[in-house]
């Protein structure tokens, strides 16, 4: 259950930010989720809805997910392309000398609270 572990880390981060900002009730948490982060959004939501009930700070909080598209850069020709569609081999020049520039992120973007 990978998503449950991720949810615990989100909650921990929100609790720290809540502490720093003297928040009493978090109503929304927005997450930026990379397309190839390996996290399944629907699973994440299920785990979230279960886990927040056990907290004080974010009992009713909704989880909003914004997707960050996965992009790969080809070192050989310098072009960027969609990772999910083309994978590791550059569709422009056929090179395998490529690396992921974005798409693995799991970022806490913002918190709506009072």
């Amino acid at each position: 259950m990978h998503e449950l572990g991720i949810v615990f880390h989100i909650i921990k981060t929100v609790e720290r930010v809540g502490d720093e900002n003297s928040l009493t009730n978090v109503s929304e948490v927005t997450l930026e989720l990379g397309e190839v982060s390996g996290v399944v959004p629907s699973e994440l939501n299920d785990c979230w809805n279960w886990a927040v009930k056990k907290t004080e700070l974010m009992k009713e909080a909704k989880l909003l997910i914004e997707t960050i598209p996965a992009l790969t850069l080809c070192e050989s020709c310098g072009k960027t392309y969609g990772t999910v569609e083309f994978g590791r081999v550059c569709p422009y020049c056929g090179s395998e000398n490529t690396y992921l520039v974005q798409g693995r992120e799991i970022n806490l973007k913002e918190i709506k609270a009072c």
Partner: peptide
């Protein structure tokens, strides 16, 4: 009732663990 605020965090959830 306190005013609702938006707090920008912009950090990886792995930050605390790191």
């Amino acid at each position: 009732m306190d005013k609702i605020r938006i707090i920008e965090v912009k950090e990886s959830i792995f930050e605390d663990n790191n």
